[in-house]
Design a protein around this nucleic acid. Structure first.
Lengths: 184, 184, 184, 184
DNA sequence: TATGAATGAGGATTCATTCAT
DNA sequence: AATGAATGAATCCTCATTCAT
C-alpha cells in the first residue's frame, strides 16, 4: 500500500506501472498481484483506505463548539495533513482532476452528505450571528483548496518560496484569513 | 492544439493517447505527427502556449492602483479564467501535481520572478498601511488555489453543489474573503 | 541517382529512407517519386546502371595480350575503381551479402557467362605454360575480393592503417601477389 | 542469439525485424524483449560475443613458428571459419560496410593493436629473409578479404561456380597464393 | 507465498506511397 | 514539375496480466 501510494500519487494511475510499484514494494510483480488482483485493485484499495481518514477532520467539526475555533481547528488540521500526508493529498487530487472516475459515487454520496450536514451547522452559526455571513459551501472549498494547495502544488510553492518552509507561514495566514472572514 | 488541450487536460500526459488526440482533432495519427514531431511536442507546445496567458493577470496587477481593488480584480480575473478556461487550468494542475517535470525551470525562473516582483508591491501596500498586514506570498497562493479549485476540482465541486452554478457564489465569497483579509 | 547511390551504398536498401534520398537530392519526397515510381525503382535503376560498368574491366581482358600483363592490368583497374567509386562497390556488396535478391538472375546469367568465358582464356594460358597452374575462378575471386576490400571495408582498413593511404601500397602488393602466383 | 545471428547476418540491423528474430527463436516478440532489452541489445550482444572468436586466429600466429607455415595456417583457419561460420562473417561484413557505427572503437583499438603487433612479427621475418619482402598490413588484408569472400559473397561465388564446392579449391588456391607471395 | 517466463493488447513512431492542388 | 498534406502498414517497445512451477 505504501509503495502504491508513493507511485500512484506521483504519476497518477495511468502514469504508474506495476513494475514501479513492485520495485518500491520490494516484491516481484507476480507476487504483488498475488496480494492484489490487479493494478486497479491496488489503486482503488488505496483510495478507499484513505477516504475515511480524509473526511474525518470535517466529521469532527463540533456543532457545539466555538464556531471560529471549530472552523479554524478544522482548517489547521487539514493543513497538518497536507504537511504530513502530501502523497495522500496528491493521490486524491490526481483522481479528481481527471474526473474522479473511480470515486464519483462517493463524492456525490458520502462526501456531499457530510458537507451538507456541516454546511447546516455553519449556516446555523451564521443565523445566530456568531460568525459573519458566509456561504458555508464556499467556505469549505476555501479550506480544502488552500490547505491542499501546499501538498498538491508543492513544486510550485517550493519554486516560488525557495528554501523557506511554507507551512509555518501558511498557518498564520490561514488563521488570519478565517478571522477576517468569520469574526463578526 | 484544441484537441490536445481537451485530451491532455483530462487524462494528463501519460494517460492520454495519440489516438485520442488524433480522433479529437479529426486527423489520422500519422497526420497528427506530421504537424507535431511527437506526443511530447504537442504537450509542450500546449504548455508553452498557455503559460503567458496564465501569468498575464498577475502581471497586470498595478502598483499604482487601489490595493484592495487591484488584488480583488486580479482574483476575480483568475476566477473568470477558471470558469472560461477550465481545461487550461487542469492541464497545468496535472503537470504540477506530477512534479512539473517539463516546466520546472519556468516555475523557478519567470514565475518566481514575477511573484517576487508583485510580492514587493503588496508588501509596500502593507508598509503604507493601505491593507492589513498579510504575507504576500501566501496571499497569492490563496488566490491561485481558491480560483483554480473551481476548475481543477470541478467534479467535486459539482458533486457537492449539485446543479447550482458555483461561480456566482464564488465571486461573492472571494470578494468577501479578500475584504476581510485586506481592508484595514 | 547520385543521391540514391550515396544513401543506399551507406545504409543498404532497408536502412535507407526516401527522406534521406530526397534530402540528398535536394528534392521533395513526392517529387522524387515523380521521377521514380518507388524506392525499389531507384534502387534497381542504380544496380542496373552500375552493373555494366562493373563488369567492363573483366570484359576487357584480352585473350591475345600478355597473360600476366592482362591479369595484372585487370586487377589494377578493379583497384582503381575501388578507389574512385567506393560507393558503387559498397552498393553491390550490400546487395550480395544480403543474398542478392534483386540481381541473383544477373549473377547466374551474365556474370557467370562472362567469368566462364574468361576462365577459359586463363585456362588456355595455363595450358600453354604461359602462367603457372592456377584455378581461374579462384584467381578471379582473389582479384575481386582483394580489390573490393579497400572500398567495402574501408572503415576497417582505415582503422588499422590510420592516415596512411592504402591504395599506393595495395597496388604494389597486388602486383607482387599476382607475379608470385602467375609468373612461371 | 542463434536466431538473431541468422536474421541479422542476412538482413543487417535495419533490415531485420524483431518479428523475424522472435519467429526464428520460437519466442513471442515481448518474450524476446524479456531476455534482451531491445533490438539493439540483441545485435550488440551478438557482435561483442563474436569479436573475440573472430580475432583469436590472428592472435594465435606464433612468432616462434615457421613463417610460411604460420601464415598459411592462419589463412586456412580463417577459411575454415568462413566455411563453418558464414553467418558470423556476414554479420561483421554488414556492420563494417555500413561504417561500423557500433564497433568503430574496437576496430581502432583492439583490432589495430593486434594487427600492429602481428605486423611487427611479419616484418621481422621479412628482415630475417625468411619470407620475401611483403607489406604485412596488405598481407593481412589479403587473407581477410579472400577468406571472407567465400562467406560474405557466397551467393555470387555459388552463382559462378554452380554446384562445385568452393572451399576445396579455395584451400589449394590460397596455399599456392601464399607460397608464391612468401617463399623466398 | 514466491517468481521466472510468457503474452495479448496496446501505443508511439516511422516510412513508402498517394492525394489534391 | 512540384509540394503540402494525408495515411495504411509496419515496427519497436511497454505493460498488465497469466502461466507454470
Amino acid at each position: 500500500m505504501d509503495a502504491g501510494l508513493a507511485i500512484f500519487s506521483q504519476f497518477g494511475f495511468r502514469g504508474s506501472t506495476l513494475d514501479q510499484v513492485a520495485e518500491a514494494a520490494g516484491l516481484s510483480k507476480p507476487n504483488l498481484l498475488y496480494y492484489f488482483r490487479s493494478k486497479e485493485a491496488i489503486y482503488t484499495a488505496l483510495l478507499a483506505n484513505l477516504l475515511e481518514d480524509w473526511l474525518e477532520p470535517l466529521e469532527a467539526l463540533d456543532p457545539d463548539g466555538d464556531p471560529v475555533q471549530e472552523i479554524t481547528s478544522y482548517a489547521l488540521r487539514k493543513l497538518d495533513m497536507s504537511q504530513n500526508f502530501p502523497r495522500e493529498s496528491r493521490l486524491f487530487a490526481n483522481e479528481i482532476i481527471q474526473g474522479a472516475p473511480r470515486i464519483h459515487e462517493v463524492l456525490r454520496g458520502e462526501l456531499k452528505d457530510l458537507v451538507d450536514k456541516k454546511a447546516k451547522v455553519i449556516s446555523a452559526w451564521v443565523g445566530q450571528g456568531r460568525i459573519k455571513p458566509v456561504d458555508p459551501y464556499h467556505l469549505v472549498f476555501t479550506i480544502w483548496s488552500l490547505t491542499q494547495h501546499y501538498a498538491d502544488f508543492e513544486v510550485q510553492v517550493t519554486a516560488v518560496l525557495g528554501d523557506i518552509d511554507p507551512f509555518e507561514g501558511a498557518r498564520h495566514h490561514l488563521s488570519a484569513l478565517l478571522r477576517g472572514l468569520l469574526v463578526p
